[in-house]
Nucleic acid binder design. Structure first.
Lengths: 138, 138
DNA sequence: ATCCTACAATGGACTCTGTCTAAGTCAAAC
DNA sequence: GTTTGACTTAGACAGAGTCCATTGTAGGAT
């Protein structure tokens, strides 16, 4: 659990109460929270933490590669702490729930050079959409 | 070109000047416009058209399956008139440019049942990310 | 051709995410 | 213990999209 904090400190991160709390929130629950949800949970532990700090910290965690940003809809970005295992996402079209999935195969290899239009392709993101068991039965 | 309008009329769409203009804008350029860009082009043809109407009309076209909504980043939804041929997207991480691509393989088949968690998976969306030739050389 | 009315358009206020800034605070190097 | 510049704060701001009460109109009925 504190290995995340260790890694961050090792990279010259100045350790503050706010950053610790944000890291703990992400590290604790392996669900995909929005920035506001992170903020809400952070406030529960450290009432005076500000929205801007949560946004800043999330942004830093993303640049450091410790957390992934997921944009599945136009509502809000979500943050995925499971950044060290490559994976994709399965999203419920109705309620927005997200699950990590690990498909076989490598979609990057499926894009032939003739379809790259001179782009330097570095990453691929796969989003499966459907209905979760709850929403499907409703 | 007017087959889109025909299809829409056939589905009981009430044909108004505003809707015609929006449909024409989408039908005309096969690029991926944001709602605001659609609005700007619509205003050029029909100065008094309102933002809300453009949003409403785009939303209807999406529900009717005539246009695809693409959410590649947090900036703005984009609308893809190429809804009848399955394809995926290649996005420039810097400038946001989008190209349609047609990879080989079927990613839906790459998701084993054990990774579906009871979801009814109906669709898969693949987004390749990288730098376009312009941004790569800058 | 005219009338009706349900559906559509308008525009402005509002919400929701996220960014920015100026001023204050504090972790850590010395 | 001081110093210092990185970090935090609150609130203003901005962009994208939605809502709603009002006004307008397409197209069927007469």
């Amino acid at each position: 659990m504190s290995d995340l904090l260790e890694r961050l400190r090792g990279r010259g991160w100045r350790m503050t109460a706010q950053r610790r709390v944000v890291a703990e929130v992400l590290n604790g629950e392996h669900v995909h929270l929005t920035a506001d949800e992170v903020h809400a949970r952070a406030v529960a532990k450290l009432p005076e933490i500000s929205r801007a700090t949560v946004y800043n910290t999330l942004g830093e965690l993303v640049s450091l590669g410790e957390v992934l940003e997921v944009t599945t809809d136009k509502r809000a970005k979500r943050y995925d702490p499971n950044a060290h295992r490559p994976h994709h996402h399965l999203v419920c079209a109705r309620c927005g729930a997200i699950r990590d999935v690990h498909p076989s195969g490598n979609p990057l290899a499926d894009l032939p050079d003739s379809e790259r239009f001179g782009f330097t392709v570095s990453d691929v993101e796969v989003t499966y959409r459907g209905l979760c068991p709850n929403c499907a039965s409703a």
